[in-house]
Simulated assay, not measured.
Amino acid sequence: MATMMAPVEQREVLRCDHCSLVQFRTANSLCRRCHKSLEVEEPEPAAAPLSIVTQSTASSDGLQVATAVRELRQVRNLSQRQLAARMNVPRTYISKIENGKAMPTLSSLDRLAKALQVDISTLLRDPKTRQRDETAVLMNDPFLAEIAAYVSELDALQRSIFLNHVRELAAGRRRTA
């Protein structure tokens, strides 16, 4: 006799900044103990003078930062939630940045860069320059340059196995065969 299991709903776990109570997100987003807001205030971007930055360059710069954040987060195998936890901000703030709906302040850019383990300038570069610079840094290492020559000759399955093995080594786990 087969039984049907109801799907388990994923609920967000938060820590109150005021009383440090760890709890599920409430419907009203208030702490169960101290009744203060669980939402972290998202910094409002400072308005730039129109004579320096036009609307079109501001929106293209915003997309540049959004693209950089998304690409760097994905390259580092981080979810939005994990990146948000590293920055100590809500996941929705990361989503807004990646979708170009919020432009981070300079202090947020600094925290974002530290969480992604890059320079702030990396977040502000165009994608082609950013990728070329990251590749150049990797190719300066003679060991990585030697591996790169062989990795290009592997098929998809071999490449996947190789990368998984490297991830395990980087994480400090040893294979038992």
Rank of each mutant, 00 (worst) to 15 (best):
V75H: 03
G100E: 07
G62V: 06
L83V: 03
S121K: 00
I97A: 03
K114L: 08
L112V: 02
R76I: 05
Q117S: 14
S121L: 05
L63C: 10
A85S: 10
D61F: 10
A115C: 06
R70I: 04
L112R: 05
I120H: 04
R86L: 12
P90W: 02
E98H: 06
A84R: 06
L63P: 02
T105R: 03
Q117Y: 10
R81F: 14
N88A: 11
I97L: 07
P104C: 04
L124V: 13
R130P: 01
S121G: 14
L83W: 05
R130Q: 12
P104S: 01
G62C: 13
V75I: 08
K114H: 12
P104V: 01
A84L: 08
V118N: 04
P104M: 02
S95W: 11
L112N: 01
L72I: 05
E98L: 09
D110G: 04
K114Y: 03
L78K: 07
L72N: 00
Q74N: 01
V118R: 07
R91H: 10
A68E: 02
R111F: 00
A85F: 05
L109F: 02
A113L: 06
L72M: 13
K96H: 13
L123E: 01
L63A: 11
I120F: 02
K128F: 10
K101Y: 12
L123A: 04
M103P: 01
K128V: 14
P127T: 13
T67F: 11
L123Y: 00
Y93M: 09
A84Q: 06
Y93Q: 11
R91A: 13
G62H: 06
D119E: 15
S121D: 08
T122C: 10
T129P: 03
A115Y: 00
K128Y: 12
I97G: 05
V89R: 15
P90Q: 13
P127D: 12
S79Q: 09
R81Y: 08
M103C: 04
R73Y: 07
V89T: 11
S121P: 00
